[in-house]
Amino acid sequence: MLTKRIIPCLDVKDGRVVKGIQFVSLRDAGDPVELAAFYDQEGADELVFLDISASHEGRETIVDVVQAVAGSLAIPFTVGGGINSLADMKKILRAGADKVSLNTAAVLRPDLINEGSDYFGAQCIVIAIDARYDDELGSWRVYTHGGRKPTEWEVIDWAKEAVTRGAGEILLTSMDCDGEKQGFNIALTKAVSEAVSVPVIASGGAGNAEHFQEAFEEGKADAGLAASIFHYKETSVKEVKTFLKQQGVVVR
């Protein structure tokens, strides 16, 4: 049986992992290779690296990070942030990433999804969606530019459109829940997961192991992503998995 996946997300800026300050046991808490190895040993099923570099130079270094991580990591990893073209995708995937995640660029030019999917296969193309509930819309609205810009897209319409164009997976972040640690947005996750034929990764709001169970059982998510609760050691991948196993959720 296919297991539910637990995915830590690492923010990378100018080639270094930021926000990983609680890893006192590591020689260098900002080294992507060391952090990747740490999560691998903890039982992470996959990793996501989010490039938050603002400068061009910073963006160039992500390729070196990908190469270094790919050389040491024996689990799949996705790279997102600032990928705007097929050329960007080629660079990242050839350096050894298994998947790329597209967000704003895909909304601005949806053909990018087709291009990436046709060239590399749907399994390489993750569409990241940031969504916030909108009273006027009576549903969740898709935002771009790191959640700063509202779009015309309703979340389920956009998710379906992305999958039709060749997305192999949806990384769904609830802006309403993000950072609150009160749990994933179950209604949003369930709505999108039931609307598309590809796996959905729930993101935003994880505070403890029970939240992952809710996302999988009620939210119908295929995977759960979290950043700060793992980085700040509020819980660990191992603890979450032990809990899920006790609850009868199939994990690795």
């Binding site: 296919l2 539910k4 399994q123 997976e169 034929s197 590809v198 796996p199 690795r252």
Partner: peptide, 19 residues
């Protein structure tokens, strides 16, 4: 097929860890 014997849909691709 993406559809099981009870006509319930399941996700394709088969993506993730399986035993």
């Amino acid at each position: 097929t993406g559809m099981d014997a009870n006509e319930m849909t399941y996700k394709v691709p088969h993506m993730g860890w399986n035993r």
